[in-house]
Amino acid sequence: MTLRDERVTLAHGGGGKAMRDLIESVFTSVFNPPGMEDQARLMHASLQEPGARLAFTTDSFVVTPVEFPGGDIGKIAVCGTVNDLAVGGAKPLWLSVSFIIEEGCEVALLRRLVASMAREAEKAGVRIVTGDTKVVNRGACDTVYITTAGVGVIPSGRDLDARSIRPGDVALVNHVLGDHGAAILAARGDLMLSTDLESDCQSLGHLMEALIAAAPGTKAARDATRGGLASTLNEMAEAAGCSVELDETALPLRPEVKGVCEILGLDPLYLANEGTLVAFVPEAEAEAALAALRAMPEGQGACIVGRAVPKGNVPVTLRTAFGGTRIVDMLVGEQLPRIC
């Protein structure tokens, strides 16, 4: 079926034929969900294994611009939810997807986003099984917002939990830091910066499986999205009941990310990532974990960034290149570019 309109109108959200045409032409023909009821009816062998647990998560995605170097809002909506499942030790299986579309949004853009989602879902080994669309007045949202929910299965005996982190455990990342945040800042255009940076947006399900296989003692992992590595580590350290010490000289950063941060007075530790996780593993398994991560394309930048230490006054500190120490705090509000 072809769609005559080039732009989405309120009619496409009206519940009538226009809406059905949009959904069939743009969404279901690509996602190809199982069955056409208002619900997905699902079965998976891994769910029936004794001790297996269901993992369930949801996330909403709002990003300007909706297409950017290295990805788009559709790709992020798949990666983000897949990653929320994966870093908790779940094997991601199914996603739901819900679009809030601004009146006037180009249908061609929606098609590109949907294709991008389908591609990423296939790569991540998940199916998009159900969804919804709504159309809102111009100005009521910014082009398109996407909400995804995801279901996965945690195999029996696997229990990743930040509370199990102990002093001496090593903190690893799989990728250089801050690519997404810096790429988006540049892509927005209002700061008139141009770079070759691309978002690190990628699904981490396969990488997590490889990590756990190589380092079965892996304690916990999180994806360092909004608020960056700094905020993620603060959350983990608070849960863990120990502190974390980062090594400034070990932090992996691209020169361009450093450049963006120098120009705008930002701290790369707080820049968002969309395909970067931080995992705590026992020191004895650190080398095996690194080797496993580096063997995969998603983990080629893997390295140790710090370690858990006995609980101090603050959750996260950073040892500077000169042996000084500073606090790495939670972010207060949003990081704003500064001149002074």
């Binding site: 141009s194 691209r254 020169p255 361009e256 450049g259 120098e262 120009i263």
Partner: peptide, 8 residues
């Protein structure tokens, strides 16, 4: 050019 970042 600042570390590969360009700005007018």
């Amino acid at each position: 050019d600042v570390s590969g970042v360009r700005r007018e």
